[in-house]
Amino acid sequence: MSTAPSELEAFVEFADNPEARCPCVLLLDTSSSMEGEPILALNHGLKAFKADLCKDPLASRRVEVAVVTFDSEVRVVQDFVTADQFEPPGLLTHGETLMGSGIGKALDMVAARKAQYRFAGVLYYRPWIFMITDGEPQGEPPEVVAQAAQRVRQEEEQKKIAFFAVGVEKANMTKLSEIAVRTPVKLRGLGFVEMFVWLSRSTQVVLHSKTDEQVALPPPGWGVV
């Protein structure tokens, strides 16, 4: 006969697996046309993104955020960090719109990150690349853009990434739909906060559901297709 009922939780030991990760690259247009109101709204949106992710304990540990900007150059403003470590940057604007090069950089970063996960035995979710622009590719040869579009198409087909494009104000939506496989969404006004809260919630949906294909995301309330 057992004696005093001991609590099982005191005896059962848990496996020490590394936390699974869901990489998410924010690929942001910081060309000079974003100056003023738009960039302020975008910076504000990034703060909302962090705040909303951190409300969900699982998301704050599992979602890894990276920020890449493209203007006259492509810069990794923030390499992958978990949401709880993410410090939203204050972005500034200048110059042209090296979108194709920016996309290439984001795809490279995702591939490298996955290789690190595999090496470390970390389980992961399908990476997201979330591109926001108010214009169209500018200041780079058309081949660079065509090549970027080609890679996006290929990697979507092979389920290597999920690539989303969001157009702001006078963004060239036709051009965006030539680049992204998924239908680009036009942001309503400068509703970046709504958009980033949606993005945060959508990653949470992904973390909390099992699927035999890509998760169907809730329709965005912040934009028009």
Partner: peptide
């Protein structure tokens, strides 16, 4: 994630033995 050693899926004895 608490009972198995991932990604291999081998059982974690410290979980099951007790």
């Amino acid at each position: 994630m608490v009972a198995l050693r991932m990604p291999g899926g081998e059982p974690h004895p410290g979980f099951f033995n007790p």
